[in-house]
Design a protein around this nucleic acid. Structure first.
Lengths: 403, 403
DNA sequence: CTACTTTGTGCGGCATCTCAACAAATGAGT
DNA sequence: ACTCATTTGTTGAGATGCCGCACAAAGTAG
């Protein structure tokens, strides 16, 4: 009831920016009195504040109201092959804390990886509390298949994990009352790219490339999880029957022709220094960019080849989903400049709708923080769903769990 | 406000069947008094009625309440290459009227096709009124791409139509106040297969095969339309680069290997009687079924080949969307018995998630009424969104438009 | 300086939900 | 057979929250 309308107002401010009470009223179909009362309550909760005046032609100018992010934070975390990390975002999306630890998930025991992750979450939480904000929950992204309940990691090929009850393990470490949720990494990256309120970011397809290729689908502003939660495994669509063998055991998976390994195999001989495992991913990609910029034909051909395959796969998905944008993330973003022409060519060629249905090819600017940002956004969603949680005893439980 | 809770109760009855007021209250988080009042109001509107007693262990047994479909009807209609048709479904999903007219949309002018369709809609409407029900709107399915507003048919390759403002044309014929909406045919077929309340029918993929192959996606119980409304064009995913030329001008589209023409080309020589255009589609498929049952190797090989390709495409879509079921509709359903093994084989082989993510292969039982049923369901959704529309003056306008 | 427009707030009224009490209808126990 | 516990459905009192309206405040247009 009340919380429903509060939610409406808070979302309107998030999605469309600062505006006056009167404008909120007309846009949301409320009376000005109701809008005033709701804004007053949100102000009491510390979620909105005054933001100057709104001059708009004749009549008395309105006093603008805007989101006040400082009161609450959501925490996002990630378990990946080479690192664990955590981030805290306030309600307005500003970074309040960021922690990252490099490790080799393959070599360490599952328990140890989870312990390290929880340490980072605790650090982020301490930062949030020091910042004077209330942490409202944590969402952890995992590189693997999570079943419908999103508590059990069925299989994480790159981590080398199988049937790990990530949810209960984390709950045991963080406290049972602490709001913890688990989500696929690609799905979180997709959420991070979907900007609330932007009509061009409500139906998007995020393709995340590293060694593997994954991603997520946002449709109508909502994450598409599928029946069991396995949606978004684009990397294992079979696009080249009779092609190369994939790490998953199949032949011709999309990631065998568009993943990082495919690019390196095509661009460099086994003894090429760019393939030295000691080099960081960023350095390798910078070197490939440099070679392509200098006009090295082999590098350019390799980038074109990968771009072509990305375009072919993207076109299939676009026929099925008609997104407003395809956002390429992970390593794709680093070499986006050289990929764009070949991707767009195959996209336009392969999509039935004229002009490829208006789908634009974009490259993520979030780097490797995409998943954790998405996680924090998921945690914050509880506040937008019911703004009163900030004041409820539940919030005190969170702080209790943090100690 | 009120209509919101009424909507909640009405949907609960639709989704989970008859139940007592007390049960509605606990399931929906209301008090028994509120549930009683809401049920009384729905009964006044003629949307629910008593339905015997509900015995459940100790205590006083409850008086069950169920949906009363008879008061309102939604109308679905369809413009296809060989026919136009209309159907009327009451709130409980029962068929109240059904009309169909064979025609050749290619040879007739656009205006004439629309005139014929409107005649069928008027007939269905008259049946509804004679049945004592109120028609709440009509949704028309069209075999082609409809842009975001779903008023303009951008391109309908099989109809031979381009840039036809179907929405305004129908509104001009039916009356401006009459609630008309337009939707892609495959999308409506998908809605028809998604049964409200059934957890195994909330995330489904419908693949509709005739000469062309199309379909629709239902995710989380809601139709996925995509940014411009072009989602579900599975038939033009390019699965066989260097393969056969498609009617859309591209090469290797999925429908070139799984559409009706691909099956007939593989199963029969050009002079085979099964390819006689005078034969109905049903008769041709019955003949192919007969040959396969008798063990004709060429027919079986052709069916296997089509099944393999369907399985390959279905696997790609399943990796992306993880549906609970893939529903094969149109001509696929008629020969489903012979397609299933090869489809399932390729589905399990091509999907990353264990056991193909639990996705089941199913065949539609709705025949060629799928799209119109989906259209009627869309029209009825306005009643579930706000049950008070039945009593509002708006409903009177509908009747006025029908005269 | 006046007329007009628009914003934000305060107050009575209405609709709707909750809470508590009660009668009705059944099963369980003696 | 009778009583008691349990659950249902209804009723009335009270609380909550939104709407409609009136009014002061703060600007623009002429």
């Amino acid at each position: 009831m009340r919380s429903d309308k509060l939610s409406l107002v808070l979302r309107q401010l998030r999605d469309h920016g600062p505006r006056s009470r009167a404008r909120l009223a007309t846009e949301l179909g409320l009376t000005r009195s109701a809008a005033s009362a709701l804004v007053a309550e949100l102000a009491d909760l510390g979620l909105v504040r005054a933001a100057g005046v709104e001059r708009g032609g004749m009549g008395r100018p309105g006093t603008s109201v805007e989101l006040d992010g400082a009161a609450v934070c959501g925490i996002g975390a990630e378990i990946n092959v080479n690192h664990v990390s955590a981030i805290a975002l306030d309600l307005a999306g500003h970074v309040v804390a960021e922690h990252r630890l490099a490790l080799d998930a393959h070599r360490l025991a599952v328990d140890e990886v989870l312990d390290r992750l929880v340490e980072l979450i605790r650090l982020a939480e301490a930062d949030v509390v020091a910042h004077g904000a209330v942490p409202v929950g944590v969402t952890v992204g995992v590189a693997g298949l999570l079943d419908r309940s999103r508590e059990l990691l069925t299989v994480g090929p790159n981590l080398g994990w199988r049937d790990v009850p990530v949810g209960s393990e984390l709950r045991a470490r963080l406290g049972a009352a602490y709001p913890v949720s688990i989500e696929n990494e690609g799905n979180l990256a997709a959420i991070a790219e979907a900007v609330p309120g932007d009509p061009n970011r409500q139906d998007i397809l995020v393709i995340f490339g590293e060694v593997g290729v994954g991603g997520g689908i946002v449709a109508g502003g909502r994450l598409l999880r599928g029946h069991q939660g396995y949606a978004g495994e684009f990397g294992h669509m079979i696009v080249e029957p009779g092609g190369r063998r994939c790490g998953c055991g199949r032949i011709g998976c999309w990631e065998t022709v568009s993943g990082l390994r495919a690019l390196l195999d095509a661009a460099a001989d086994p003894d090429d220094p760019v393939r030295d495992p000691a080099l960081s991913l960023d350095d390798r990609l910078a070197e490939l960019n440099r070679r392509a910029d200098l006009g090295d034909t082999r590098t350019i051909a390799a980038l074109d080849r990968v771009g072509n395959w990305i375009g072919i796969g993207a076109a299939m998905l676009t026929n099925a989903l008609n997104p407003s944008a395809i956002v390429l993330s992970g390593y794709f973003a680093e070499i986006g400049h050289h990929l764009r022409p070949s991707i767009e060519e195959h996209l336009v060629a392969g999509v039935l709708a004229p002009q490829a249905g208006g789908t634009r090819v974009e490259f993520s600017t979030l780097g490797f923080t995409a998943a954790v940002r998405g996680g924090a956004a998921v945690a914050l969603e509880t506040v937008f769903d019911d703004p009163t949680v900030v004041a409820s005893p539940h919030a005190a439980v969170h702080l209790g769990g943090a100690r």
